[in-house]
């Protein structure tokens, strides 16, 4: 059985008439890195909330169909059961910070304190995560006196430290500088290689193309494509759904129209594929 199974899932937020997610079917295997792409309002965050139990526990609303996450049915289990299996990194790190800690170090330990982890182990795990997410220089600062990007790294660290079986991330690099984003993607990819299951909503398609195993494209709450990065991101209908394509795909499309892209080659999604295509033309 897949680690995450959604069947015919439809969800309405309270007091709304149109569904935020509609007839969604999805299976995710253990250790898989699945990225979710889609325009604003397509349902990316809603899906993140569903997989992490915030729907229906925090947002209420009306959930139809079936959801199984690491064997838990969110409509039956409490949020407490989810915490040890699934970690959610919020879109806005400011909303995730506990507000009860004075330093980044303590903030990262907050989740472990609540799980009643032994202090010696807690220190070891916090130190390790601080190293991994490269925030050694921030550990004694207030979580509120940080830049947006720094706060985002702290938000990621405070979830990673809990070693969730499933890590759900809602645009985790939106405020990071480009190379910082790449580092964070690499850290997350390493987690996936160690067996952690990753669900990530993300607009940065050029990174998603390099790191994700599969991509789910959403539009108006419905799945429009599910497959490998090349299958999904190279598909011609993506822009119709307001989903961004990388400059590599963009420029190849323009080139194709101008007769400057090899006809039998599919649309490139990464720099390497783009270079190979144009090298054929130049030769």
């Amino acid at each position: 059985m897949a680690l995450i199974e959604l069947k015919n899932l439809t969800y309405h937020y309270p007091l709304t008439n149109s569904p935020a997610l509609q007839d969604l079917d999805l299976e995710v295997q253990e250790g898989e890195f699945l990225a979710i792409v889609g325009a604003n309002g397509a349902g990316k965050s809603t899906l993140c909330y569903t997989i992490s139990g915030f729907i229906p526990h925090f947002f209420k609303g009306e959930l139809a169909g079936s959801v199984s996450v690491a064997g838990i049915d969110p409509t039956k289990a409490g949020l407490g059961e989810f915490v040890q299996k699934v970690g959610l990194v919020f879109q806005n790190p400011f909303n995730q910070i506990s507000g009860s800690k004075f330093t980044v170090y303590e903030e990262i330990a907050f989740g472990l304190e609540n799980l009643g982890i032994d202090p010696a182990e807690m220190r070891e795990r916090v130190d390790e995560i601080i190293r991994l997410t490269r925030i050694e220089d921030l550990k004694d600062r207030s979580p509120y006196a940080l830049s947006g990007g720094q706060q985002q790294r702290v938000a990621l660290a405070s979830i990673l430290v809990m070693r969730p079986q499933i890590l759900v991330l809602d645009e985790p690099t939106s405020q990071l500088d480009p190379i910082g984003s790449q580092e964070v993607f690499q850290v997350i990819k390493d987690m996936a290689l160690q067996g952690m299951t990753i669900i990530m909503a993300e607009h940065k398609v050029e990174w998603v193309a390099e790191f994700a195993d599969r991509i789910l494209a959403l539009s108006a709450g419905q799945a429009i494509k599910l497959g490998t990065p090349r299958e999904v991101l190279g598909s011609p209908e993506l822009p119709e759904h307001g989903i961004g394509i990388s400059r590599y795909t963009q420029v190849a499309r323009k080139a194709l129209q101008a007769g400057l892209w090899p006809e039998k080659r599919s649309m490139p999604v990464t720099l390497d594929e783009c270079v190979q295509g144009f090298q054929e033309i130049i030769a």
Binding site: D177, P178, G180, E206, V251, K254, L271, V275, F278
Partner: peptide
């Protein structure tokens, strides 16, 4: 300072263009 060149600039460089371009 953790900033990359634009995607188009990187592509052009890999292809050996002698001019700097940054727009599709």
């Amino acid at each position: 300072t953790y900033v990359e060149q634009p995607q188009i600039t990187r592509l052009a460089k890999r292809l050996g263009f002698s001019t700097i371009v940054y727009k599709p």
